[in-house]
């Protein structure tokens, strides 16, 4: 079993510690510091996010997405063809993002995540996985003023992000995580999604994980299992019916399951016993050596203290699970 985080990490510490990132962002807006100075603050906060994950004892970490304003803008503003518009609610959260608008052909221009990945790897004693928002989700959360169909838009993004995954290949990451929460709300788009995944992964050598969250994949799990992903990540906090899917359809023997079991959107800390019981139930379908134990989504919905407690709990659960099976 491997413990991992699923993406974002709170950018500011708990009160009364000053939020350096937050005050730097304000200063940047007012033109009191340069982009370069802001980037150095992001570097420091990224190292804090890495340290928290490593100290908690996680096996596979992310850079905490400290440099991401959100999962859409971070990609759209470095691609050609997008403008960035007003605020939209991000799924059923109280988090808002600026909506990208496709005004012309969307194409890959330059590496987006590569430099950030290099930085994180350099500053982490543990393996790091880069995260990329998938083409279907990026299209669904954007406005399309250019393509005549959603399908064309999604496939254009899949081709663009394929370039990004190939650029990451050169860095030989242990795993690349592709986030596709939006497909859970549109199982009817499965044929399009399948096509997009084929275009996205074409010629990509790194192992790729598909992560979904904020719902269940009941109608999709079998199809996911047919796609060339090394890991399939499911959210068991917001999507308890993922149990039904898993128990009814089983899980392919040659994949890992991203077991999103700690609720990333609630401060309530699950007990070790509670998670052990869930792992016991899971082990009847998926052997624990093929489980990536994690939170149900990125941890930025929580204050940092609560986020850190979830990470520590993941490592505690793993230790306890090894005791039990020993």
């Amino acid at each position: 079993m491997r413990t991992t985080s699923v993406g974002s990490y709170p950018k500011i510490p708990d009160l009364p510690a000053p939020g350096r990132w937050r005050s730097a962002a304000e200063k940047l807006q007012r033109g009191e510091i340069t982009r370069e100075e802001f980037r150095r603050v992001e570097d420091e906060v990224t190292r804090e996010a890495i340290a928290d994950q490593v100290e908690a004892g996680l096996d596979l970490i992310t850079d905490g997405q400290i440099r991401w304003e959100d999962g859409q803008t971070y990609f759209a503003r470095r691609m050609s063809g997008f403008s960035i518009d007003g605020l939209q609610r991000w799924f059923d959260t109280n988090v808002y993002y600026r909506q990208p608008v496709a005004e012309g052909p969307v194409t890959w221009r330059e590496p987006i995540t590569v430099e950030d990945y290099r930085f994180a790897r350099q500053h982490s004693p543990k393996p790091v996985k880069p995260v990329v928002t998938g083409p279907y989700t990026l299209a669904r959360l954007s406005q399309n003023r250019f393509y005549s169909t959603l399908g064309e838009f999604v496939l254009a993004l899949a081709r663009a992000l394929n370039r990004e995954l190939r650029a990451l290949d050169a860095e030989s990451p242990p795993l690349v995580q592709v986030d596709e929460p939006a497909i859970l709300h549109h199982p009817e788009d499965l044929p399009l999604f399948r096509e997009a995944v084929a275009a996205l992964l074409e010629g990509v050598r790194s192992p790729v994980a598909l992560y979904t969250y904020f719902g269940d994949a009941r109608k999709l799990l079998a199809a996911f299992a047919d796609m060339p992903f090394a890991v399939i990540g499911l959210d068991f906090a917001a999507g308890p019916r993922n149990w039904d899917a898993l128990e009814a359809e089983g899980f392919p023997p040659d994949r890992r399951l991203g077991f999103g079991v700690l609720d990333a959107r609630n401060t309530r800390l699950e007990t070790v016993d509670e998670v052990l019981r869930a792992l016991d139930r899971l082990s009847r379908v998926v052997p624990l050596e093929r489980v990536d134990l994690g939170p149900s989504a990125g941890l930025e919905f929580l204050p940092r203290r609560a986020a850190r407690a979830k990470l520590v709990r993941l490592a505690e659960v793993k230790r306890a699970a090894l005791e039990v099976t020993r």
């Binding site: 950018k11 304000e26 304003e69 930025e300 204050p303 940092r304």
Partner: peptide
């Protein structure tokens, strides 16, 4: 504690 809603 403090949680981000958007931007900073």
């Amino acid at each position: 504690g403090l949680v981000r809603s958007y931007g900073n």
